[in-house]
């Protein structure tokens, strides 16, 4: 970790490996500064890791990164202890949060962090790249909450890219808050909703048996992507209702 007038730079790393005894070991588990990692009790052959935010952040000018690699045959679940709050900072410029996930053949990653809250005055760019091998499996949920209670949100740009064997399956960027291109809160994009999220499920068997598209109430849909994956997209008035609809959709995918 380095700290300067430009903000904090921190990179946390996780490597999960099949331990050859029906479990998953974590040969690399390195927190960095505000990004602390903790192994928690796993279940079956799946290792569990918690991201523990030691400071609230990211603040303006901070660059955080998380790298998680799940090697062939290993199973990893990553969660976080609390929501991440983007706050305005002393340093100039936007904050960055960059997540790179790689999942090898026969491996599974469940990436299920708590919400990202875009506080008033903050300016954060999040990028999440998941690179999967042909037979990798992924469950990835991300939720954005625009503003704390009763507060206008900050600027938030969040891009999610999922690739299988280098082929881009999903590429979506949400840009919202003050300074975002016009209409972001209007009837085509968020329509006044303050919580938005998506969940991607990649499974090789979806190639032959894709999920059928369906709508879940007013603000959510489950759709098959153009490849072995399903996507849940949801908007909701608040974080609680968003979580409920995403989890319900994930459950329905089995």
């Amino acid at each position: 970790m380095t700290a300067a007038a430009t903000g904090v730079r921190a990179t946390a790393r996780i490597v999960a490996r099949d331990d050859g005894r029906g479990g998953t070991s974590l040969p690399v588990l390195e927190g960095d500064g505000p990004l602390a990692l903790r192994r928690t009790r796993g279940s079956g052959d799946e290792a569990h890791v918690m991201l523990v935010g030691a400071m609230s952040g990211p603040l303006g000018g901070d660059h955080f990164a998380v790298r998680a690699g799940v090697e062939a045959g290993a199973r990893l679940r990553v969660g976080s202890a609390a929501a991440t709050i983007a706050l305005p900072g002393q340093a100039k410029g936007e904050a960055r949060y960059d997540v790179r996930l790689t999942v090898a053949d026969g491996a599974e990653l469940r990436w299920l962090p708590e919400q990202l809250i875009s506080a008033g005055g903050s300016d954060l760019r999040v990028t999440t790249h998941a690179d999967l091998a042909a037979t990798a499996r992924l469950v990835l949920r991300e939720e954005q909450v625009l503003g704390r209670v009763g507060e206008e949100p900050g600027r938030l740009v969040s891009r999610l890219v999922v690739r299988i064997e280098g082929r881009t399956l999903l590429d979506q960027e949400l840009d919202c808050g003050p300074g975002a291109p016009g209409g972001w809160d209007g009837p085509a994009v968020l329509g006044g909703h303050r919580a938005v999220g998506q969940a991607v499920v990649v499974r090789p068997e979806f190639e032959d048996r894709p999920v059928s598209a369906r709508v879940l109430g007013e603000g959510a849909a489950v759709v098959p992507l153009a490849g072995p994956a399903a996507l849940v997209t949801a908007v909701a008035p608040d974080a609680l209702r968003l979580r409920r609809v995403l989890d319900e959709a994930l459950k329905s995918l089995g």
Partner: peptide, 18 residues
Amino acid sequence: VDALPAASAPLLEISAEA
């Protein structure tokens, strides 16, 4: 092609399915 914009509109996507 990764350099192309990927701007998304959740409500357009969801309501298209409905």
